[in-house]
Design a protein around this nucleic acid. Structure first.
Length: 271
DNA sequence: AAAAGCCCCTGGATGC
DNA sequence: TGCATCCAGGGGCTTT
């Protein structure tokens, strides 16, 4: 579920409340993708200084060290009643002086990892290879185009790889490529400056709009306040196989790229 | 270096 | 109703 917009919406929904909270206790449930990397007792008494986002990772800066949190495919965070017993899929509870943050993640592709410092090897391993943040000034067209030029893989998969630009997952890759009029199978290296410019704008536009809409709720995404997203209602191609293109009426096609569904309009999107 | 495939895991939808 | 199969928003790791 969670791509950049959902992760950012999640961050915005709990960052203010958790900032400057003191951790009272931490409970881990079933194993997530990786072990926490420290004893939970080590976290007790630490202060949360702020919450950042890097790609699809949430970074909780503590007075000493930080927590890297990933929602995987099915994760969501919520403030929970401190007295409510954890459900079968609640695998991380962080009780703080400002409320209890709970990670619900049925598929357990998510993760909560402690790093003693910003330069820890685990931070480097998880974040070191990430590309540029698309909603910052650092996302510059020339560099983006230059990056595309060096890749022979289909553009959809280059976007998903996250080492050129981060945060674009399966939904927003299809949507951005539709907006840019580019066929997802087009090799990245074949995209000229003009089309790269359209894609560059489309990525920023679609991600910004999705954040404004509270993200996409396909199955069960909600932010830490329990609110669902609405962007899925605006999807031009994602999940719309065989339905008429909202622009030209041609049936939307679905193909598989790298074990994932891709949707596009064969008329509006050129190879 | 880059690309392609393989998994991790559970639940819901679909088909027989 | 029961059971098998397929699919799902991610991404690190291994192999080519």
């Amino acid at each position: 579920m969670p791509e950049l917009p959902e992760v950012e919406v999640t961050r915005l929904s709990f960052a203010d409340r958790i900032k400057d909270a003191q951790i009272v206790s931490v409970r881990m449930g079933k194993p997530l993708r990786w072990p926490l990397g420290c004893d939970v007792d080590l976290l007790h008494g630490r202060w949360v200084r702020g919450v950042r986002r890097r790609g699809k990772y949430l970074l909780l800066d503590l007075d000493e060290g930080l927590l890297l949190l990933h929602l995987g495919m099915s994760g969501s965070l919520a403030f929970s009643d401190a007295t409510s017993a954890p459900g079968a899929h609640d695998h991380f509870d962080m009780v703080t002086t400002q409320g209890t943050l709970r990670l619900h993640d049925p598929r357990r592709f998510g993760a909560v990892v402690f790093a003693a410092e910003q330069t820890s090897s685990v931070v480097q391993k998880l974040l070191g290879h990430l590309g540029v943040e698309p909603l910052t000034e650092a996302f510059e067209l020339r560099a983006f185009h230059a990056g595309l030029r060096t890749r022979s893989a289909p553009i959809k998969q280059v976007l998903l790889a996250g080492d050129l630009v981060v945060g674009v997952g399966n939904i927003y890759a299809s949507e951005a490529l539709f907006m840019a009029g580019i066929r997802p199978t087009t090799r990245a290296s074949k995209i000229g400056l003009e089309r790269a410019g359209r894609l560059h704008r489309a990525i920023q536009d679609v991600l910004r709009r999705a954040v404004q809409q509270g993200g996409s709720t396909l199955r069960d995404f909600s932010n830490a306040q329990g609110q669902t997203g609405y962007f899925q209602l605006e999807a031009m191609v994602y999940g719309r196989e065989n339905q008429p293109c909202r622009t030209c009426g041609t049936p939307i096609q679905s193909i598989r790229q790298g074990q994932r569904a891709t949707y596009f309009c064969p008329q509006c999107q050129k190879p």
